[in-house]
Amino acid sequence: MSILYLVGTPIGNLEDITYRAVRILTEADYIFCEDTRVTAKLCQHYSINTPLKSYHEHNKDKASKQILELLDTDKTVALVSDAGCPCISDPGYELVNQARDKEIRVETIPGPNAAITALMTSGLPSYKFVFLGFLPRQAKEKHDVLDKWMQRESTVMIYESPYRVKQTVKAISEIDSNRKISLGRELTKKFEQVVTEESTIIEQMLESEEIPQKGEFVILIQGQDESLQDTTWWEEMNLKEHVEFYVENHEMRSKDAIKQVSIDRKMKKRDVYEAFHIQE
């Protein structure tokens, strides 16, 4: 029976792979990966001789078709990313949906994840967190996204390149200079560095190159203290305006916005729904 395996691979240290992952990669008929050169190093380290084929953002449609054709002929395919878990801030979810639509079995072999690894070692609250992946490159769009999510209690997890990390930390400082953040780079590698400080201190450390701008970064932002949140900002809005605020500014569906308004105002969701539609 054909199976599509989603296999987690090390984010740096090649020893961070499971016995099951090595077995699946060895037994699969093909391994599809972002960069065959990167995955070849992992395969060579573990004497895995499975043929490699590329699957990345620029060829995913063509490669997905090829994968589905192989699965239709009872082949097993393993999908990996360069580091970490496929489908997480990487292409792959479309392929999973296509496979499921064809009733092809999909199995996940868990593995390391840079965001979770950074959160574990950061010392920041970990009971509530939100993962945003890579932020927009334009300064205004980046600022707007940060401003939106930094108003919440959840710790925010972001991926960032060494070329834009200073700009992103500066944007965080402009929104809240006292907010504690954690910067993790080169996680699990020889020169791993994790620093947790107020955003302005992190900004200074980047400027002085105490934190070198080398390697991929994970930025964690501590959530806003609940006691500092303004819980009455909506008082001058009517119900329709309150719902529309969430739809327009937080990209919520009206159903979700109505639910959030009912929480804000401590009302029954049904009452908010009826009032919202009466005011339309």
Rank of each mutant, 00 (worst) to 15 (best):
L4K: 08
L4R: 06
G8N: 02
P10G: 00
N13Q: 00
Y19M: 12
Y19T: 03
R20M: 10
R23I: 05
I24W: 07
L25S: 02
E27R: 13
A28V: 08
Y30G: 01
Y30C: 04
I31C: 08
F32S: 05
C33S: 15
R37H: 10
T39V: 08
K41Y: 02
H45W: 08
S47I: 03
Y55P: 07
H56Q: 10
N59W: 09
N59F: 10
S64P: 10
K65A: 15
L68I: 13
L68H: 06
E69W: 00
A78P: 08
A78D: 12
L79G: 09
C85W: 02
P91S: 11
G92I: 11
L95S: 14
I104Y: 10
T108H: 01
N113E: 00
T117K: 07
T117L: 11
L119N: 04
T121C: 06
T121H: 08
T121Y: 03
T121Q: 03
G123Y: 03
F129G: 04
L132G: 11
P136N: 09
R137Y: 09
Q138C: 01
A139F: 11
K142I: 03
K142W: 05
H143R: 13
L146S: 08
D147Q: 13
K148N: 09
M150S: 12
E153R: 10
T155F: 10
I158M: 12
P162M: 07
P162Q: 04
K166P: 00
K170G: 00
A171E: 06
E174L: 14
I175H: 12
D176H: 03
N178C: 04
I181L: 14
S182K: 02
L187D: 00
T188K: 01
K189L: 02
Q193A: 07
Q193W: 01
S199A: 15
T200L: 14
I201N: 11
M205T: 00
L206F: 09
E209S: 15
L220G: 11
Q222H: 04
G223F: 12
E226F: 01
Q229L: 14
D230T: 08
W234A: 12
W234T: 06
L239V: 14
K240I: 04
V243N: 05
V243T: 09
V247K: 11
N249Q: 13
H250M: 09
V261N: 06
I263W: 02
K269A: 10
Y273F: 11
Y273E: 05
E274Y: 06
E274L: 09
E274F: 06
Q279R: 09
